[in-house]
Amino acid sequence: MRYFSQQKLDQLLAAHAEWLQEPVGEAMSLCNCDLRGMDLRGRSLMRVQLENVVLAGCDLRDCNFFGAMLRKVDLQAADLRKACFASSFCEQIDARDSNWQQADLISAIIKLSDFSHANLAYADLNKTSFESSVLDQAILSYTHTVRFSLSRSSARNAQLDHAMLDFATIYACDLRGANLNAASLRQLKSFEHVAVAGLQAKDVVIEGGRFTGWFDASPEADGSQRHDADWMRQQLTKADL
C-alpha cells in the first residue's frame, strides 16, 4: 500500500486537471493507495481510475467523480455529501456507514458493493443500477430513483419511504423489513422474485407497473410462503406483510 504526502497528491490532481482540459493518453490512475487524512473536499476526480484505494473516513463532500471507475475502494464512514458520482462505475466498493446525502449518482453502475447503513437520503439515483450488492439498513428516504434498478441484492430493513421509484426495476431482491411508506411506484418496469416479509407499505402510490414471478412472505425467506403477483399488488396497499 502506497502513501502520499498532501503536496504529492496536489501535484497529481493538478496534472489530472490539465489532462481534463486536453485528454491525451489515459486518465489518472491510482492503485494500491491509502489516502486517509488527505484534503480532498471539493476536488475534481472526473474520469479518474481508482483500484484498491483506501478513502475510509475521508471528507469527500462536493467531490466530482463524474465518469470515474472505482474498484475495491474503501469508503467506510466517508463523508460524500453532495458528491458527484454520475456515470461512474463502482465495483466491490465498501461504503458501509458512509454519508451520501444529496449526492448525484445519476446513471452510476454499482456492482458487488456493500452500502449497509449508508445514508443516501435525498440522493439523485435516477437511472442508477445496483447489482449483487448489499443495502441492508441503508437510508434512501426521499431519493429520486426514476428508472432505478436493484437486482440480485439485499436491502433488508432499508428506508425507502417517500422515494420516487417510478419506472424502477426490482428483481430477485431481499426487501424483508424494508420501509416503502409513501413511496411512488408508478409504472414499475419490473417487480418480481422478491422476499417481502415485514415490508412496510403505507400510502404507496401504484399506477400500472409489471408485477410478475413469486413473492416470498416467509420470515426466513425459505420459500414456504410464496405468493403470486396479484397477491403482491394487493399487499402493497396494506400496512404490513
Rank of each mutant, 00 (worst) to 15 (best):
S154A: 14
D94K: 10
N179E: 03
D104T: 00
G37K: 01
F4R: 00
C58G: 01
H162Y: 14
L188N: 04
K8P: 02
A95N: 01
V48M: 03
S98N: 06
G37R: 05
D161C: 12
A77L: 03
E220Q: 10
L185C: 09
A118V: 02
V73F: 14
E207W: 11
R2H: 10
F215C: 04
A86M: 08
A221P: 01
A83V: 00
F215K: 02
M46T: 05
Q234D: 04
L185H: 03
S149I: 09
S184P: 01
I93P: 05
E131H: 08
Y3N: 13
S129P: 00
A155E: 08
D222M: 02
N126P: 01
V146C: 14
R176N: 13
R96L: 08
L75A: 07
L60A: 05
L70I: 00
W214Q: 11
S184G: 13
N179I: 05
S5Y: 10
N32S: 09
F130Q: 09
D97R: 05
A168W: 01
R147V: 05
N52H: 10
A239D: 15
A108V: 00
E91M: 03
R61V: 05
L105A: 07
Q102G: 06
Q6E: 14
A178D: 11
A197C: 14
A183D: 06
A172D: 15
C90L: 14
I110S: 05
N179G: 03
L140A: 11
R96K: 10
Q6A: 12
D59M: 08
S87T: 00
W100R: 00
T145Y: 11
L80M: 12
G213A: 06
L13S: 10
T143W: 00
R210P: 04
Q6C: 07
D39Y: 13
